[in-house]
């Protein structure tokens, strides 16, 4: 009898503990999700509804905000700029990083390790440090407000992380494969393209996602190096857009929703790769 009550006591304590933990998790999940929830509901409100009802569900549901946001400013143009710049930088950066990582991992030369460590250590250099000299240089060579100008910057800035991630991954691919492929007369490029790239597909997807996310969301460099209105990226565009349309908050929110939607969709679909990629820096420790 005594034994029984003691056990129910313990299990009761367990249950309360569990309930407290669940409650904590729910509260923080709510805090984490609330701003996005608010962004979404506000994007579908009418201006009048928003003024009286700031945190309830929208009624009537207003699709028109999205259309207004698309027409306001040069939204479509900014979207296109962001897409071109993100795709161009990611593609070029990943290709160059593949070649470099292949050299570091499979064709070591004297001092290659020192160079690799140096390149990796560049990850800690803050981009703001580079803007003054590059701004002056870009003005001289006419690179401001050009796609190639900003793409070169993004390729360079994402390079340390890309090389680090890919070199680590390439090192895990057994050397025997390279030897036997060489024997069959495969060139270095052939080996990289036919063996390494397919084998490291998961790492490559991870890398592309991480870099694309960073470039899409980047503000400082885009602001400094793309001053012309028609060359703006979405992130620069929406910061300007907000001050122009700040009376109509639902329309502003619709614009924000549109500009962050691609990344939210990617996250929902590829959650695994996002988490793996963004925590990759720590796996080696």
């Amino acid at each position: 009898m005594k034994e029984m009550s003691k056990r129910t006591g313990v299990s009761f304590e367990r249950a309360t503990q569990k309930a407290i933990k669940q409650l904590l998790l729910i509260i923080v999940a709510f805090i984490a999700l609330y701003p996005l929830y608010w962004l979404i509901i506000t994007a579908f409100k009418t201006q009048a509804d928003y003024l009286v009802n700031k945190f309830g569900l929208p009624w009537p549901i207003m699709i028109g905000n999205i259309v207004t946001a698309l027409r306001g400013g040069r939204f479509a143009r900014w979207f296109l700029n962001s897409t071109i710049i993100t795709a161009g930088s990611t593609l070029a950066g990943t290709t160059i990083a593949c070649l470099a990582a292949f050299a570091f991992a499979k064709m070591p030369f004297r001092g290659s390790n020192a160079i690799l460590n140096f390149v990796i250590s560049l990850m800690v250099v803050p981009p703001v440090v580079m803007i003054v000299p590059l701004f002056i240089l870009y003005a001289q060579i006419g690179f401001t407000s050009t796609y190639q100008g900003i793409i070169v910057l993004y390729v360079g800035l994402t390079m340390p992380f890309s090389v680090y991630l890919l070199t680590n991954f390439f090192k895990t691919i057994p050397h025997d494969i390279v030897d036997s492929a060489m024997m069959d007369g495969c060139s270095h490029f052939g080996i990289l393209w036919r063996i390494y790239v397919p084998l490291s597909a998961p790492a490559l997807v991870t890398l592309i996602i991480v870099n694309a996310l960073w470039i899409w969301n980047e503000l400082l460099l885009a602001l400094v190096f793309l001053p012309k209105d028609k060359m703006r990226t979405l992130m620069v565009g929406i910061t300007a857009f907000r001050s122009r349309l700040n009376l109509d908050i639902p329309v502003t929110m619709a614009g924000l929703l549109l500009s962050t939607l691609p990344m939210i969709i990617l996250y929902v679909v590829f959650q695994r790769f996002f988490i793996r990629g963004l925590t990759a820096g720590a796996t080696k420790g």
Binding site: N217, L219, M235, I238, S259, T260, M263
Partner: peptide, 9 residues
Amino acid sequence: LPYILAVPV
């Protein structure tokens, strides 16, 4: 989720 959202947004 907050970590992947753009800071300007």
